[in-house]
């Protein structure tokens, strides 16, 4: 029974990773850049909810909505101010380093505004836990909600990409920016939309993550962000279903590793698995072969 409950915890944590990984993978697929500040957007989203609920006493739903809006605006703003001017830079390293700098900027801004003290994230998910097998298996409401939200987001995103014009534009831009422009697609607009979606999802991930692990510091987003990045690479960066598979697998490996091997070694196990996967299949589980143009 404990194995099952670990498994469910793993899937739940993995769902959060998957939602974060989506932001990494979509931005990579469409703008061909790694947005290392993505993890810190999660932290900002969590602080917005914290401030709204604990300080201002707002209704949690309203607070989450504000966090989603706030993070969306922040993500689009970061792309516009910091990344877009570098898009045609000679070296792709320029934008990568800017992203790392942006990550530190967000962390330090949070440090300045909210201080270094750990904040206790309010309990905003009040779903009852589910008790199965005569109370031997207990699944928290947060876990259930997290898994549910992840499934809904994945389904919605796939339908969005398949069925809408903006989704088609994303497909085109991810394959060939120049050709997409020639079709009449606004490439900058499409990239901005991708950042908006990724950042909105980051806000949701922040709420789910902090509901499960309610201590909030300016560095809360950093490690989950990196693990989600690993998940995105693991599943095949650029692939939406890959983010889901990578995220869930990573969450499960992390929780089972903590439970059965060593909680200190959990990260070592996670990154060890990544190394093995990349040695066997460099493009990740669902990754495409990257063909270099001659």
């Amino acid at each position: 029974m404990s194995f099952l409950s670990y498994l469910i915890n793993g899937i739940s944590l993995g769902s959060v990773y998957a939602i974060i990984a989506l932001g990494y993978t979509m931005v990579y697929g469409i703008a061909k850049m790694l947005n290392f500040a993505h993890g810190d957007i999660i932290m900002i989203g969590a602080y917005i909810v914290f401030t709204c609920v604990s300080t201002a006493g707002m209704h949690p739903a309203l607070a989450v909505l504000l966090a989603v809006i706030g993070c969306t605006v922040l993500g689009v703003l970061i792309e516009r101010v910091a990344y877009r001017p570098l898009r045609s830079a000679a070296s792709p390293l320029a934008v990568l380093i800017t992203a790392i700098g942006m990550s530190y900027l967000l962390q330090n801004l949070a440090l300045l505004i909210f201080g270094a003290n750990t904040k206790n994230f309010p309990e905003i998910i009040t779903l009852p836990s589910l008790s199965l097998a005569d109370g031997q298996l207990n699944i928290t409401g947060t876990s259930l909600l997290t898994i549910g939200v992840c499934v809904v987001i994945m389904a919605a995103l796939m339908i969005f990409i398949r069925k809408t014009k903006a989704g088609q534009a994303m497909l085109a831009v991810s394959e060939d920016k120049g050709a997409a422009q020639l079709m009449g697609i606004n490439v900058n607009g499409t990239i901005a939309l991708t950042f908006a979606i990724g950042s909105a999802l980051a806000a949701i991930a922040g709420v789910l993550l902090c509901s499960a692990y309610p201590s909030l510091t300016p560095y809360t987003g950093s490690m989950p962000g990196i693990r989600a990045f690993v998940a995105a690479v693991f599943g095949g960066i650029g692939s939406v279903p890959g983010a889901l598979i990578g995220g869930i697998l990573l969450g499960v490996i992390e929780i089972l590793g903590r439970a059965y091997i060593s909680s200190q070694l959990a990260d070592a196990i996670v990154f060890g698995v990544l190394i093995v996967v990349l040695l066997v299949k460099p493009t990740g589980i669902l990754g495409k072969n990257i063909q270099e143009k001659v």
Binding site: K165, Q168, A169, L171, A172, E175, D176, A179, M183, G184, I185, K288
Partner: peptide, 16 residues
């Protein structure tokens, strides 16, 4: 667009 079908490519041409 190599990963899209012939039909999807043609539809992309009518994007506007």
């Amino acid at each position: 667009f190599a990963d899209l079908s012939v039909y999807q490519n043609l539809r992309m041409g009518a994007y506007t």
